[in-house]
Write a protein that binds this DNA or RNA. Structure first.
Lengths: 216, 216
DNA sequence: CTGCACGCCGATCTTGACCTCCACGATGTT
DNA sequence: AACATCGTGGAGGTCAAGATCGGCGTGCAG
């Protein structure tokens, strides 16, 4: 009935052609790409190793010849994503000495990260494996590290205590992260740069007034 | 074999004594409480129905006589938590007409919510079942609804376009949510009211200037 | 005292996903 | 050009966890 079937859900992404042998390194990269696509699309739990193997056009044993298990594969991708946003955040903060530009540049980093085609940010901001301590630690480290770098600037320029600087910095990171994700879900009714600039303005207006010691 | 039990990791929370028959309604409430504790402590996937039943001091069939399945149980708890924060947010916004007080009251709501002893906020802000559309819809609705109520105020008082108002409101919600969660993780080095006031100040300084064009 | 109803428990089934074993074909060498 | 080697593929094992079925004890009406 209902000839339907309509391919339950497997389609949408064509598996690669089945043939072809390729060098180890290249195969590994391809497996990582396929795994990222599947994890992003389905989440950790819903993603089956069979799906990843099919997506790459190989069979399951090949996958296990490159990665010891599902969790290792996930952690490898997660580490890459975490390092990416942290490094970009660091570079943005170091790109200028003007704090207003710092805020704008950092906000742009978060929006670019979220807008990235691969969708790797979902592993960090929307992981469904937070019960795993290894995952939790890495995900938390993104916010912690980014906030820590921002907090250094805040503490240096305002003289606020450590805890307050950290909390303010975490707030800015949360603002960036949540608003960027929501902007993306909104389907781009606002241009990326406009959205980033809007929220950067909000953040800057909020944080600029804080120097307790009279700066100017 | 191996009489088993030996509660490998179930410790930390003592299961209730095994005896006692009780009326349906009361049993149901107790099951909900036990399920909340387990889901909060372990997450959805790591939480086994056996754990919940043991926690309540009953056996698994009893659990299934009260709830059709694991997901239904989870959704019931999730709905309660979502309604709670949304209602509290609404009340905070309606509690005054001064926007500065509105920001402070709303921030306090988020911090109180996160500081609540039961930890129900983890179902909303740290769910590991976002791949389930029913869960995703409810979790997103929290941010959407709260932000929408805030956006109404922003749009009314600033004349900004809908999309910008929504994005700003989402940013404020994200700031509150993320900073409150990290404040809690920090172990209370800052008093709850101080932390909420600090971030409320940040938010208010950020939002108060709109729609004026930025200057220095 | 006896039969009944009701709610509860131990033990079990099944599904699904992670993780390996036997056959096949392509490649490099002599 | 033929053979040995190595990587690939399909089929299967294991196990954990969600979901369920026959016995048991308690309280009550007759």
């Amino acid at each position: 009935m209902t000839a339907g079937s309509t391919d339950t859900a497997s389609d949408g992404t064509h598996p690669r052609p089945r043939g072809g042998r390729m060098p180890r390194r290249e195969r590994r990269v391809q497996l990582l790409e396929s795994a990222l696509e599947v994890f992003v699309a389905q989440g950790y739990h819903a993603a089956a190793m069979d799906d990843i193997a099919d997506r790459a056009g190989v069979s399951k044993p090949v996958l296990y010849q490159h990665f010891p298990g599902k969790l290792d594969l996930y952690l490898a991708l997660l580490d890459t994503s975490c390092d990416l946003i942290i490094d970009n955040c660091r570079e943005a903060l170091a790109s200028t000495t003007d704090n207003r530009d710092r805020v704008a540049a950092t906000m742009k980093v978060f929006y670019s990260y979220v807008a990235s085609e691969e969708g790797a940010f979902r592993l960090v901001f929307e992981s469904d494996l937070t019960s795993e301590p290894d995952v939790r630690e890495r995900v938390d480290r993104v916010t912690t590290e980014c906030a820590s770098m921002i907090a250094d600037v805040i503490r240096t320029d305002t003289g606020l205590p450590d805890e307050a600087s950290e909390l303010l910095a975490v707030s800015l990171v949360g603002m960036a992260q949540v608003s960027a994700r929501f902007w993306l879900a909104g389907g781009g009714q606002i241009a990326q740069d406009d959205a980033a600039a809007l929220i950067a303005g909000l953040a800057w207006r909020g944080i600029r007034g804080y120097p307790m010691t009279d700066d100017h």
